[in-house]
C-alpha cells in the first residue's frame, strides 16, 4: 500500500475527480430547481475548447477558466429558455444541447486539435504538510482548483441547508406551485440555477485542458465525463458532499487503468474502461429504485415544466 505508484494513483484520482465533481455539482443545482439538463457533456466540451482558445492566445489561466465557464453558462441559457419559457421536453432539449455543443466544439476546435497548451494549473505544496507520507501528496500538494472544488461542495451544502435562498430553491424543485403561491419567482430561480449549472460544467471542461491534459481533442477531452457527472448526481442522491466523494471514487476507477498497466497487470484497457459505467448502473439499480428514490431525495418536480394558469 505504501509504494510510490499507489500514492501517485491516489493523488491522480483526486485530480481526475475534480472535473466530474464540478460538473455534477452544477447539475445538482439545476436539478434541485427541478430542471434536468442532459447537456452537461456538450457544455463541458464548449468550456474546454473555449478555455483552450483563450489560453492559447492570452496565456492567462484564470481568464481561460472564467471565459470557458461563461461559455458553458451561455449554452445552459439556451436550455433554460427552451425548457422554462418554451416548456420543451427537458430530455430532448438537453440531448440536443449535447449534440449541438459537441458539433460546435469540434468545428471550432478543428484548427487547434493536437496543439499543446503552454500553460496549466500547477500544484501548490503546503510547506511541511506536503512532505507527510501518503496524505502529503494526496491532500496537500494539489492545484488551486482542487481546493476550490472542495470549498464549493461545502458552500453548496450550506446554501441548500442553511440559507433562505437555498430553502426557496428546494421548494421550487419539490413543489413549484406551492413556491409560486409563497411569492417565490419560480422561473427566475430555475433560470439562475440552470445557468450556474452550465457555468460549473464549462469550468469543469476548462479544467480538463487547463489542469489535466493540456491539449484539445474531441474524443479524448471529455470522453463521456459529462454523462458520468449526470449519473453521479443520482448516485449521490442530490447531496453535494456525496457528489464530491463519488467524484473521487470515479476518478480513482478511471486512474486505476493506468496504474494496473504500469504494474504490468495484464487486463485489457477496454475492459477496465467499462468499469465506471458498470459501477454506475449497479449503484443506480440498488440506490435509484423507485421506492428508495423518495427516501433519498430526488426533487419531486424534477423534469416537469411549470405553467401557472393552464392545466
Amino acid at each position: 500500500m505504501n509504494d510510490g505508484a499507489f500514492v501517485a494513483l491516489l493523488a491522480a484520482s483526486v485530480v481526475a475527480g475534480v472535473p466530474i465533481a464540478l460538473a455534477a455539482l452544477g447539475e445538482l443545482l439545476a436539478e434541485r430547481s427541478g430542471v434536468l439538463n442532459l447537456g452537461v457533456e456538450g457544455m463541458m466540451l464548449i468550456g474546454a475548447v473555449v478555455a483552450f482558445q483563450v489560453g492559447n492566445s492570452s496565456g492567462s489561466l484564470w481568464l481561460s477558466l472564467v471565459v470557458g465557464a461563461l461559455a458553458g453558462g451561455a449554452l445552459a441559457l439556451v436550455h433554460a429558455v427552451l425548457t422554462v419559457t418554451l416548456r420543451a421536453s427537458q430530455i430532448v432539449s438537453g440531448l440536443s444541447l449535447t449534440i449541438f455543443g459537441t458539433g460546435l466544439a469540434t468545428f471550432v476546435g478543428k484548427s487547434i486539435e493536437g496543439l499543446p497548451l503552454a500553460t496549466d494549473f500547477r500544484a501548490v505544496a503546503w510547506g511541511p504538510l506536503a512532505d507527510l507520507p501518503v496524505v502529503g501528496p494526496v491532500l496537500f500538494e494539489q492545484d488551486p482548483i482542487v481546493y476550490a472544488t472542495v470549498v464549493l461542495a461545502v458552500a453548496i451544502t450550506w446554501y441548500l441547508r442553511r440559507t433562505r435562498a437555498g430553502l426557496s430553491l428546494r421548494s421550487v424543485g419539490e413543489s413549484p406551485a406551492t413556491a409560486d403561491s409563497m411569492g417565490i419567482a419560480v422561473a427566475r430561480l430555475r433560470y439562475l440555477h440552470v445557468v450556474i449549472g452550465g457555468v460549473l460544467a464549462g469550468a469543469a471542461g476548462a479544467y480538463l485542458v487547463l489542469g489535466q491534459v493540456p491539449s484539445w481533442s474531441q474524443d479524448g477531452t471529455t470522453s463521456g465525463l459529462g454523462w458520468i457527472a449526470l449519473a453521479l448526481v443520482v448516485f449521490a442522491s442530490w447531496e453535494p458532499m456525496r457528489v464530491l466523494l463519488g467524484a473521487f471514487l470515479f476518478g480513482f476507477s478511471r486512474q486505476l487503468n493506468f496504474y494496473l498497466q504500469a504494474k504490468g497487470v495484464d487486463v485489457p484497457a477496454e475492459l477496465l474502461s467499462m468499469l465506471p459505467y458498470l459501477l454506475t448502473i449497479a449503484v443506480l439499480v440498488v440506490w435509484g429504485s423507485r421506492d428508495l428514490r423518495r427516501r433519498v431525495g430526488a426533487p419531486a418536480a424534477l423534469g416537469l415544466p411549470y405553467v401557472r394558469d393552464e392545466r
Binding site: W227, A231, E270, L271, M274, Y277, L278, T280, G288
Partner: peptide, 28 residues
C-alpha cells in the same frame, strides 16, 4: 421492476458496448 432511470442505464450501457466492440477488434 425497480424504476431505475432508463436514461442513465441505457447511456452507460452505450459506453460498455463501445468498449466491448473495441475490445473485440483492437484488444483481443
Amino acid at each position: 421492476w425497480f424504476g431505475t432511470s432508463e436514461i442513465i442505464t441505457s447511456l452507460m450501457l452505450t459506453f460498455v458496448a463501445l468498449y466491448l466492440m473495441r475490445f473485440l477488434i483492437f484488444g483481443s
